[in-house]
Each structure stands twice: as structure tokens, then as C-alpha cells.
């Protein structure tokens, strides 16, 4: 049995509204974060290759 009560119609509407709010900034931020990780990883790997 699911512990939550079934969401009311009003809350379901609210949920839909929340989901459709734009999260463009979030999407861009996580892409930049991913790019930062990749760039740093590649830079240290390049250092490894140079020293090897």
C-alpha cells in the first residue's frame, strides 16, 4: 500500500504547473557542470600521458 494519500485535484493541477515551469537555467547549469568535470578530467589525463 502506498503511504501517501492520493493527491487532490487541486494539488495535481499545481503539480502540472510546477512541471511545466521552464528550467532552462538548471539545464544549462548542469551541462556547464558536466563540461567542467570533463575538461578537468581530460587535462589531468593529458598530464599523465605526457609524463608517461
Amino acid at each position: 500500500m502506498r503511504p501517501d494519500p492520493t493527491p487532490s485535484k487541486k494539488n495535481q493541477e499545481k503539480q502540472v504547473n510546477t512541471d511545466t515551469e521552464p528550467l532552462k537555467g538548471t539545464f544549462t547549469s548542469v551541462l556547464l557542470l558536466g563540461a567542467f568535470i570533463v575538461v578537468c578530467w581530460v587535462a589531468v589525463f593529458a598530464l599523465f600521458l605526457n609524463r608517461a
Binding site: M1, D4, P5, P7, N11, K14, Q15, T18
Partner: peptide, 12 residues
């Protein structure tokens, strides 16, 4: 949370 959200019971 913003209103009620469904959370699967298995998480607990």
C-alpha cells in the same frame, strides 16, 4: 514540497 508528491513506499 510543492503540494503532495508521490513517493514510492519502497524507498522507506
Amino acid at each position: 514540497t510543492d503540494g503532495e508528491q508521490y513517493t514510492p513506499a519502497i524507498l522507506e
